Computed example of a mutant assay.
Amino acid sequence: MKQIEVQILQQSYLLSCPEGHEGRLLDAVERVDTAMTKIRDAGKVRARERIAVLAALNLAFEIADRDAADLAARSAERRAAPAPAASTTTAQHELPLPEADDERLRAVVGRLDDALGGDGRLL
Rank of each mutant, 00 (worst) to 15 (best):
L9Y: 14
G20A: 08
E49T: 13
A115F: 14
R48T: 14
D33M: 04
V6W: 10
V29A: 09
P18V: 12
A35P: 00
L15I: 15
A55D: 02
A28S: 14
V6A: 10
T37L: 07
D113I: 02
A69R: 08
E94K: 11
A55Y: 02
A42P: 01
S12H: 15
P18I: 09
L15F: 10
E22A: 15
A115V: 01
A115W: 09
G20I: 06
A100E: 11
R50V: 06
I39D: 00
L54T: 01
E30M: 07
L95V: 04
D70Q: 12
A72V: 00
A80V: 11
P96W: 04
A28C: 12
V45E: 04
A91T: 15
A28K: 12
L116N: 13
S87R: 15
C17G: 02
L123N: 04
V108L: 04
R104V: 07
Q7P: 09
A68Y: 06
A80F: 04
Q11R: 13
T34F: 05
E94N: 08
I63T: 10
L112T: 04
N58A: 03
A42G: 06
R50M: 03
A60D: 01
A86S: 11
L54E: 00
Y13N: 12
E77K: 10
T89R: 15
A115Q: 14
Q10F: 05
D67R: 05
I8N: 15
G120R: 14
E77T: 14
D114C: 01
R50A: 03
L97C: 02
L122Q: 05
P84K: 10
V53Q: 00
A73M: 08
P18Q: 09
G20M: 09
A28I: 01
R106K: 11
M36L: 06
A73W: 03
M36I: 03
I39K: 08
F61T: 10
R46H: 01
R74P: 05
G110Y: 07
C17E: 11
S16C: 02
G117D: 02
T89V: 13
V32T: 05
A55H: 00
R78C: 00
L116A: 14
E77N: 10
G23F: 02
L123D: 12
I39H: 05
I63Q: 12
R40H: 07
G43K: 09
E22R: 14
G120L: 10
A28P: 06
T88C: 08
L71N: 01
D33H: 07
G43S: 01
A100T: 03
I4Y: 13
D119A: 03
H93W: 08
I63C: 09
P96Y: 02
E5H: 11
D102A: 08
M1I: 13
A42T: 00
H21A: 13
D41P: 01
L9V: 13
E30F: 05
A35F: 03
R46C: 01
A85M: 10
E5F: 12
V32I: 15
P96L: 10
S87K: 15
E19H: 03
V108M: 01
L14A: 11
D67K: 04
R31A: 11
A81R: 14
S12R: 15
G20P: 09
R106I: 07
Q3T: 15
A91D: 05
I63N: 11
C17Y: 11
S87Y: 15
I4W: 10
P18R: 14
T37W: 01
